[in-house]
Lab assay of single mutants.
Amino acid sequence: MSDQEAKPSTEDLGDKKEGEYIKLKVIGQDSSEIHFKVKMTTHLKKLKESYCQRQGVPMNSLRFLFEGQRIADNHTPKELGMEEEDVIEVYQEQTGGHSTV
């Protein structure tokens, strides 16, 4: 019986991991920090939209990076291997420009 009891508790931990929340720091170019608590399985588009709304800027005017890689709207913290207190960097999107060649 103890084996049966242990097995469901392991499964519960697996389920808990799926719905687990982590805190992420979003740091802007001006070094301002906003902290977000997100589920591991939530699409990061929600975090990006919330950040842009707080900053009063359109979402397409900023780019969000985690460990140097651009974050897509459909990425989740779990897919990117994010952990508690990880940092997302935000930069002004640069458009235009010309070749110097």
Rank of each mutant, 00 (worst) to 15 (best):
E89S: 11
G96L: 04
C52L: 02
Q55C: 13
M82A: 03
Q29C: 08
P8S: 11
S99V: 09
G14H: 15
F66M: 04
K78T: 05
M82R: 03
R70M: 10
Y91V: 14
H35I: 10
M82Q: 01
L62G: 00
S9W: 08
K78M: 14
D73C: 04
H98G: 10
T10M: 11
S32H: 05
V90S: 08
T76C: 08
S99R: 10
P58Q: 07
K48Q: 01
K37Q: 13
V101N: 07
S99D: 08
P77Y: 01
V87T: 15
E18W: 13
V57C: 04
L47A: 01
V38Y: 08
T100F: 08
G14R: 11
L44G: 02
K78N: 14
L24M: 06
E79G: 13
L13G: 09
I27D: 03
L65N: 06
T42D: 06
D3F: 05
F64K: 02
Y21D: 06
K45M: 08
N60Y: 06
E67W: 10
E83V: 13
K45T: 05
M82K: 02
H75P: 06
L47D: 04
Q69V: 05
F66R: 01
A6M: 15
G81W: 07
V90A: 14
S61P: 02
L44E: 02
R63E: 07
H43I: 10
F66C: 04
T95Y: 00
K39Q: 09
G56V: 04
L44M: 14
Q94A: 13
G96H: 07
I27G: 03
Q53P: 10
L24V: 13
E83M: 14
K78A: 10
D12C: 11
N60E: 15
G56M: 11
K16Y: 10
E11S: 11
Y51K: 05
M59R: 11
V38G: 01
K48A: 01
S9G: 10
E5F: 10
E93W: 15
S50I: 15
G56Q: 14
H98C: 07
V87Q: 13
K7G: 07
L24C: 09
F66Y: 13
L24K: 06
Q53R: 13
S99W: 08
G56F: 07
E93D: 10
H35F: 12
S31G: 10
E93I: 03
E5D: 13
